[in-house]
Design a protein around this nucleic acid. Structure first.
Lengths: 147, 147
DNA sequence: GCTACATCCTCTAGTAACTAGAGGTTCAAG
DNA sequence: CTTGAACCTCTAGTTACTAGAGGATGTAGC
């Protein structure tokens, strides 16, 4: 009963993204009308809402795939689901710590700059010499702060 | 005087990453020995340290490229540099806000789950129905929390 | 029925910042 | 002189989409 555009409007997930989710097997292939266009039902809508919400909470698509599979088996214990959620929580906490350290360091660097010439620019100095900055982000690698 | 491996060891930047930086023009093409292997000098090392430190602080490569260009012009005012740094600070602050909201929501969801069966799992319920969660991450799009 | 025009279709390629691997060459130690 | 580490280039893969080409279909007004 729903075209892809309508589904998109109702869920807030963009049309190409819906097709992408179908392509990677996160959404089942929907029926088509005579013209070959996708038609969705209420179930698709619920599933897509689930995906969207989980994405908003930062779950990676692979975890979402697993969550969807687990949620289909409604009599099972939800330990596995909790484990995924807790892993995600830990991940978010880890990123928070890193991001806070980054924030502190950036702020310090900017405050110290008196805005003269490049030659005396504190930002350039600090970036060029790690010794000049507080040590609390020393072991950050990009992996830690990337999503 | 430095092989790529030595440079890597001294800066903490992986060998393939150094080659990648050269490929995208962030590092100048170094000299080569007779065998065709790269040899680096102290200047390369400083430049790479700068890049690495800026990456640790979350600056995107395009900003780093600009910072490097600006820092070569040492008599200029450092306003442009400060602007880039402040933009990055704002970006980090934005991500922090989003991540905190995410964290709160995840925690709430997990705490509420009594760990029974999937049928009653709070995690699945909340993911499936946005109305069940506190509204503070409503407008998060993945772009906001991605790095 | 006809004409716009929005929406839909598939397919390919691009994004950021690397990382992994294939298949081969060069260097350094013993 | 051999062995093995380190180097070389090149291509493709990662995540989660997004953009665009080039064409088909659906719908509203006349």
């Amino acid at each position: 009963m729903l075209s892809i555009g309508k589904l998109s409007g109702l869920t807030g997930v963009k049309v190409p993204t819906i097709r992408y989710y179908e392509q990677i097997g996160l959404l089942p292939k929907p029926e088509r009308n005579e013209g070959g266009q996708r038609i969705y039902n209420h179930t698709s809508r619920e599933r897509l809402n689930f995906i969207r919400h989980a994405r908003e909470l930062g779950f990676p698509l692979d975890d979402i795939r697993e969550l969807l599979a687990l949620s289909d088996d409604s009599d099972q214990s939800c330990d596995a689901i909790d484990a995924i959620a807790k892993r995600q929580l830990a991940e978010v906490e880890h990123r928070l710590v890193r991001l806070k350290a980054l924030h502190k360091e950036l702020e310090r660097m900017i405050v110290q700059c008196t805005c003269g010439t490049v030659q005396t620019c504190r930002v350039i100095q600090v970036l060029g010499d790690h010794g000049l900055c507080a040590a609390d982000h020393q072991k950050i690698v990009s992996h830690d702060i990337d999503q």
